[in-house]
């Protein structure tokens, strides 16, 4: 088991009201599985992903990552850099850096050696080998999102967290992205946790979950 969530709760204070976004969430995820989560807007999908991805802290409960309670991890930046890959709805690339520079950012943050042949092979795998030195603004939406997937997996993370990864893509690019997730899952045994509104993306999950009124249910 790569990830275990125990009794996770998260609430926000909105003026005088307290919004209980997540209520006693429990979840176990095995290495190499694809988890898809759907739910209406504002149901707490992104909040759940932020808690798993250590970008936020729960009010209650535990997130156990590879038998380690993330509450007890001292350097969360390093943990995030090493173990988690993020894909957001908008590509979120840094426009002043070339595609290659964007992709190798997590590797440079970790101060690990950058193997240029490996980067070239990765661009080839993503069919973007002729665009390595281009800038994000020169690319289509689908291409940009592929680059952000590259950035998410460059450090060979244990889990890739994708928050509405196809939200800004047309149907053709949605299919391309689905194929890519499946390929990475099959060939590299990567674990994916994907929050999505898209039924096609939702259908690829080994475990399909729905988040409604703060509770997580299996479908």
């Amino acid at each position: 088991m790569i990830l275990e969530i125990k009794n996770l709760s998260k609430s926000f204070i909105d003026g005088k009201k307290t919004l209980n976004v997540l209520k006693n969430i429990n979840l176990s995820i095995d290495q190499g599985s694809i988890i898809t989560i759907k739910g209406p807007s504002g149901s707490g999908k992104s909040t759940l992903l932020s808690l798993i991805g250590t970008l936020d802290k729960p009010n209650k409960g535990e997130v156990i990552f590879d038998n380690e309670n993330i509450d007890l991890i001292e350097d969360l930046n390093r943990f995030r850099n090493d173990k988690i890959g993020y894909i957001f709805q908008s590509h979120n690339l840094i426009s002043e850096l070339s595609l290659k520079e964007n992709v190798i950012l997590p590797r440079e943050i970790s101060r690990k050696k950058v193997d240029h042949q490996e980067i070239k092979d990765l661009f080839q795998f993503f069919e973007l080998d002729d665009r390595m030195h281009s800038y994000p603004n020169d690319l289509s939406g689908g291409e940009k999102q592929r680059v952000s997937v590259m950035r998410a997996i460059i450090n060979q993370p244990s889990i890739v967290i994708a928050d509405e990864p196809t939200g800004n893509l047309d149907q053709m690019n949605v299919f391309k992205m689905i194929d890519l997730f499946k390929k990475l899952n099959n060939e590299h045994n990567l674990t994916f946790i994907i929050a999505t509104h898209d039924n096609e993306v939702f259908s690829i999950g080994d475990i399909k979950l729905q988040l409604k009124e703060g509770y997580l249910k299996n479908i």
Partner: peptide, 15 residues
């Protein structure tokens, strides 16, 4: 937005 991206991929606040 770029600051948030860098934080999400593990860059420290100091960096």
């Amino acid at each position: 937005r770029e600051i948030a991206i860098l934080m999400s991929i593990g860059m420290s606040k100091n960096s």
